[in-house]
Design a protein around this nucleic acid. Structure first.
Length: 308
DNA sequence: GCCTTGGAATAGGGAGCTAG
DNA sequence: CTAGCTCCCTATTCCAAGGC
């Protein structure tokens, strides 16, 4: 007994004849006839009484039909589940992000995403870009957001953006009077820096070395967000990704363009050897849109978008 | 007019073989 | 070892003929 037997039986019960059932199932009448007789043979039940040209359900057939209807409710549930999987994948989206994105841009994007897909569960895992590469490559996550792509990673990669850093300073700072901050403006300034070993730190240091500017590097922090928080407490100035800086904008903090600015790349990583999750692609659309919105909110666009 | 049955055509799946 | 191909078997479907 298989699904085709049950479908044929149900169609005959509902339509009242094998011919009508065949039309409903887009098959031939002989095929329905054969399926019904096979079903009767396999179940050991006489489902219909053949009375001349009429087909009359027996009491066994009617009782069996009640069970079939119950089973069809379950089958409909499977059909609905299939439709949901078709539209939403597993219904769960796992995102790995480096801290600067995972604490600012990605949460904003998740907020917008769950408004669009309220039935989807999103989990966010924040760690270093190296770990984000590893998690995505090992299929632990459906999407990764990282500042660099590991050489060992076989993830599929798209660049989300490359944006210029901005200068973040206390509102009372003397540089708040300037429209644009340059490296020489930070000569002798207390500078809150990312820790040694961070790729972004090296890019920043190079800008100041090239300008021959010496800063006071008394305070280091692991994440840009921490640097901004310390700026809020008047502990110094820092350079930050504009979207991270945007979250700290407000009373006590000013943001100014920095020229020539070190640039922060941001990459989207997709698990290798498998089709991209529809949910992940939908999230990427939200992420890209939001990224540009937030960026324009901090740094009004000069021309075009900043993505490389 | 409707159902059943036999025969033919077709599609799909599995096993076995081969090349990279 | 794996992917791709071919062959064979089985299941499914359709057509035609006949019975009720």
């Amino acid at each position: 007994m298989n699904l085709k037997h049950i479908e044929a039986f149900r169609a005959v019960m509902v339509s009242g004849s094998m011919t009508a059932a065949a039309k409903a199932l887009f098959t031939s009448q002989p095929n329905v006839s054969r399926l019904i007789s096979q079903l009767e043979r396999e179940t050991g039940l006489q489902l219909f009484q053949r009375s001349g040209v009429r087909l009359i359900p027996t009491s066994e057939g009617t009782a069996f039909f009640r069970e079939v209807e119950r089973a069809f409710v379950g089958l409909q549930g499977l059909a609905n589940a299939a439709a949901q999987i078709r539209n939403l994948g597993s219904g769960r989206l796992r995102i790995a992000a480096m801290p600067s994105a995972g604490m600012t841009l990605v949460p904003h994007a998740i907020k917008r995403f769950v408004e669009l897909f309220p039935e989807v569960t999103v989990s966010l895992h924040v760690n270093t870009s190296g770990t984000v590469n590893h998690w995505t490559a090992s299929q632990f996550c459906d999407l990764g957001v990282a500042v660099y792509v590991s050489e060992a990673s076989d993830c599929e990669v798209e660049q989300l953006s490359t944006v210029a850093a901005v200068c973040v300073m206390p509102a009372t700072h003397r540089l708040a009077a300037k429209r644009v901050v340059r490296p020489e403006d930070l000569e002798g300034e207390s500078f809150i820096s990312l820790c040694h070993g961070d790729g972004t730190r090296a890019v920043m240091d190079e800008v100041f070395q090239r300008a021959g500017v010496k800063r006071v590097l008394a305070i280091e922090a692991q994440y840009t967000a921490m640097c901004c928080e310390m700026v809020r407490h008047g502990m110094g100035v820092t350079l930050a990704h504009p979207i991270v800086a945007r979250d700290y904008r407000g009373p006590g903090i000013e943001i100014r363009p920095f020229v020539p600015a070190p640039r922060f790349p941001m990459y989207l990583l997709f698990p290798p050897h498998r089709p991209r999750e529809r949910l992940a692609m939908a999230f990427v659309d939200v992420l890209r849109g939001l990224h540009d919105e937030l960026l324009a909110d901090v740094v009004p666009p000069v021309r075009g978008r900043s993505r490389a």
